[in-house]
Amino acid sequence: MNHWDCSPFTVTPAASLLSRCVASGVVSQEEIDSAFSEPGSAFSPHLHEAKEQIRMHKQLDELQLQLDLLKVDMHSSDVAHAFHLTRRSEGLQRLGAHLLAVLKEQKSLTQRLMAPLARTDLPVPAHLHRSVVVSFRMMMDFMERLEEKLRSVRNQEDCSNSLALLDVSTAQLLALAAETDVLSNRMLQWRTAGSCEEPPSPQSAD
């Protein structure tokens, strides 16, 4: 009778599954008996090999992690080593000296950068001299006309501003004229009233 049976009269699902595996040839009855007699071991050599492979992969992962940590430690120790620090300090000193030299020669460098890179005079063939002269005259005429146009535009703006000022001045002048007219009328009224109120002279009384 199978060891996985709980009683002579009942068959558990595990026992049924194992019996099917034995019937299909996946495992043998001896492997099942050995697994039952030695708890903790695998049912078949294939499972045992898979278990060993998993264990070896874990060990390889641990070794790879340790190797990565050692590489990181090695790189950090190289950076902090006196040899590398000396090389870096020397490079920084050379860079500082170069910058100081550039600052000392700033004026000459500025003049060199401002100087034109090409020649100032361009060679012109002889048969094109007349065309160059004509083009130069046309360019001068264009510049003169452009200046005249710009001057006229500016004059128009000045004229518009002057007209606006003239309108304002005219309005102020009209207001002053109206006030002057009112004041003159008042003065005439005062004079008229004063002449009417004067007492008669003694000769006119006789």
Score class of each variant (00 low, 15 high):
9 F>I: 14
10 T>S: 08
11 V>C: 05
13 P>R: 04
14 A>Q: 06
16 S>V: 04
17 L>N: 08
18 L>D: 01
21 C>G: 05
24 S>M: 10
28 S>M: 02
31 E>L: 00
35 A>R: 07
36 F>P: 03
37 S>Q: 04
39 P>A: 01
40 G>V: 00
41 S>R: 02
42 A>Y: 08
42 A>F: 05
50 A>N: 03
56 M>R: 10
59 Q>H: 03
61 D>M: 04
62 E>I: 00
77 S>P: 00
77 S>Q: 02
81 H>C: 01
85 L>I: 09
87 R>P: 02
94 R>K: 12
97 A>E: 14
103 L>N: 11
107 K>H: 14
108 S>F: 14
110 T>F: 14
117 L>D: 13
120 T>G: 06
121 D>S: 08
125 P>D: 06
126 A>N: 08
135 S>W: 07
136 F>G: 03
138 M>R: 11
140 M>K: 14
142 F>R: 07
145 R>P: 00
150 L>E: 09
152 S>W: 13
157 E>M: 11
162 S>A: 14
165 L>P: 00
166 L>A: 12
170 T>I: 10
180 T>N: 15
187 M>T: 14
188 L>C: 15
188 L>W: 13
190 W>R: 13
193 A>L: 13
196 C>Q: 10
198 E>Q: 07
200 P>D: 09
201 S>L: 13
